[in-house]
Design a protein around this nucleic acid. Sequence first.
DNA 1: ACAGAAAAATAAACACTGTTCACTACATTT
DNA 2: AAATGTAGTGAACAGTGTTTATTTTTCTGT
Lengths: 207, 207
Amino acid sequence: MGIADRKLREKTERRQAILEAALHLFTEQGFEKVSMRNIADAIEYSPATIYLYFKDKNELLLDLQTQGFGQLAQELKVLEAIEHPAEQLRAVGEQLLGFAFRHPELFELMFIMNGPMVAAQACAGANAWPGGGSAFAQVVSIVQRGIDTGVFRPQKADSAALMIWANVHGLAALHLRQRLVVMPEERREAAMHEALNLFHELIRRAL
Amino acid sequence: MGIADRKLREKTERRQAILEAALHLFTEQGFEKVSMRNIADAIEYSPATIYLYFKDKNELLLDLQTQGFGQLAQELKVLEAIEHPAEQLRAVGEQLLGFAFRHPELFELMFIMNGPMVAAQACAGANAWPGGGSAFAQVVSIVQRGIDTGVFRPQKADSAALMIWANVHGLAALHLRQRLVVMPEERREAAMHEALNLFHELIRRAL
DNA sequence: ACAGAAAAATAAACACTGTTCACTACATTT
DNA sequence: AAATGTAGTGAACAGTGTTTATTTTTCTGT
C-alpha cells in the first residue's frame, strides 16, 4: 500500500507546512495581525484549504501550543542534571521566564490565550490538557521529591507547585501584557529577575 | 451659562451611560461576544454615535479599566485598619484574589487584556498607567514600611512588591485563562488559597 | 416667530474577520 | 474508458471596528 502511505505522508506534511507558516507569521507580526487569509497566502493555498486540515482556527492554535510545550520540554531537560530540589525549582523558574522572553508568542499561546484552550476542552474531556498537564506534573514531582528527602517541610505538593508556577507565570504575564509600565523601562527586566531570585531565596529559607 | 452647563452634563451623562451599558454587556456575556454594535443597540443609539464619545473601542475599554481600579481601591480600604505589614500583604493578596473571583471581567480588563493598555500608551507617555501605577505603589509602600520598621529584611522594595504582585496575579490569571484544568475542578479554588497561604507563610518566615 | 448656524445622530459604506458550501479538476479504481 | 473519490477553490455569509457624507435636531440672533 505505497500509495496510501504517500497520501498520508503528504497530508501530514502539508499540515505541518501550514503550522510552520502560521507560527512564522505569528512570531513575525503577532497574533492580532495575522488572519487565516494571511496564512493561506503564505502557503499559496486558498483559505478554505486550511479547513481541510484543521477544524477551525482554535484547533490550529492548539496544535501550535502543543508544539510549544514540546519545545519547552526540550529546554527543560537541563533540569535533570540538577540534584538539589530547591536548585531545581530555581532553574525551572529561570528557564520558564527565559522561555517567555525568548519565545513570547509561544508563551502567549501556552499560558495566556483563550483560543487554544477552547479547542482543548472541545476535543478532550473536562480536564485534559496534555502539554500543560505534564509540565505542571514535573513541578509537582520536584516538590514531592523535596518533601520526601526532607529538604522541604511536609505539605501538599500540588498547592506548593501551584504557588511556584503562579509566581513565575505572574512575572511573565504581567510583562508580556504591558503591566510593568509601572516601572521605568530600564528597570523592568532587572526587577523581574530580582523578584524571582528573592522568591527562590524564600523557598530555600522557609519552604 | 445654564445651557452650556447642561450640555456638558448631558454629554458626560451619555458617556457614562455608554460605559455602564458596555460593562453590563461585558459582564453578562463576556468580552468576546460583545461588539460595538451590541453596545449601540443596548443604549438605543447608532454605532457611530459611540465614536462621538470615545476615540475607539480601546479607549472605551481603558475607561472601564479605570473604573475598575476605582472599585478595587474602594475594596482595598479595609487594609488601612491592619497595622502589621505582613498581615497587610496577606490581606492584599486575599482581597485581590477575591476581586478576581467576584469581578472576573474587571480583572481581565485591568490585568490581562491588551486593548486598554494600547489606548493607555497611545494617550499618555511611555510609562503612564494611572490606575495600575497607584495600586502597585500601594504594595511597594507596605513593603517599604515593613523594611523601615524592621519586620522585613532590608532589600529593594519594588522587586519584593513585584514578587508579591506576580504571585497573586499568576494565580488569578492562570485560573481565569483555564490553565488550572491540570487540577480536578473541585480542587482548584482550594489549591489557589492554599498556594496563597503558603506564600504568605514564606513571607512571614523569611522576607 | 423665523431664518440660519451649530451640534448631534445616523445610514451606508469600507476593509476587514472566521467560516461554509457548491463546484471544479484531477487521481484512483473498476 | 467510465465511474468514483478526493484535494482544492471562488464566492458568499454573517459578523467585526471604524469613517464619512448626510440628515435631523437644537440653539442663536434678528
